[in-house]
């Protein structure tokens, strides 16, 4: 790297800022968790996880964190949980790749819960 100009410095900042933001979890208000237990994976959870990740990135949702966990609520897999301050916990069961796209477009972007995919989880 040779001596920078002001524009070079700004270009580096713009590029690197995006990377650093991914590590910044402050102020993230929505948390999406995908169940990636053995049974989840065999039911297609990996595809769901990747789809969610791509769609979240494409929609530029930097307030959303996506994580995975072992097993979640005992409902039809793949399972996706969405926590938000407003709606609390919403669990979706039997999520397909197309459903994953809908979760991002409808729930995360438009704020509308996908009632047809929602499952009730009994608290015990």
């Amino acid at each position: 790297m040779s001596i920078l100009s002001l524009d070079d410095l700004r270009a580096i900042r713009n590029r690197e800022e995006k990377e650093l933001k991914k590590r910044d979890i402050h102020g993230r208000s929505v948390h999406v968790v995908v169940g990636m237990g053995t049974s989840g994976i065999s039911a297609g959870a990996k595809v769901v996880l990747n789809t969610l990740a791509d769609e979240i990135e494409a929609a530029g949702l930097d307030k959303v964190i996506l994580t995975q966990t072992g097993s979640l609520a005992p409902v039809a897999e793949p399972v996706v949980e969405v926590f938000s301050k407003e709606a609390g916990l919403v669990v979706y069961g039997d999520v397909s790749k197309a459903d994953a796209v809908r979760i991002v477009k409808e729930h995360l972007v438009a704020g509308k819960i996908l009632e047809d995919k929602r499952v009730e989880v009994k608290e015990d």
């Binding site: 410095l9 700004r10 580096i12 900042r13 690197e16 990377e19 650093l20 590590r23």
Partner: peptide, 21 residues
């Protein structure tokens, strides 16, 4: 505790050298 101090790009990303600019 949040950036790699041996990587200038991370400092720049965290608004580093903005003040100098």
């Amino acid at each position: 505790g949040s950036i790699d101090p041996e990587n200038i790009n991370e400092y720049i990303a965290a608004d580093g050298y903005k003040a100098l600019e």
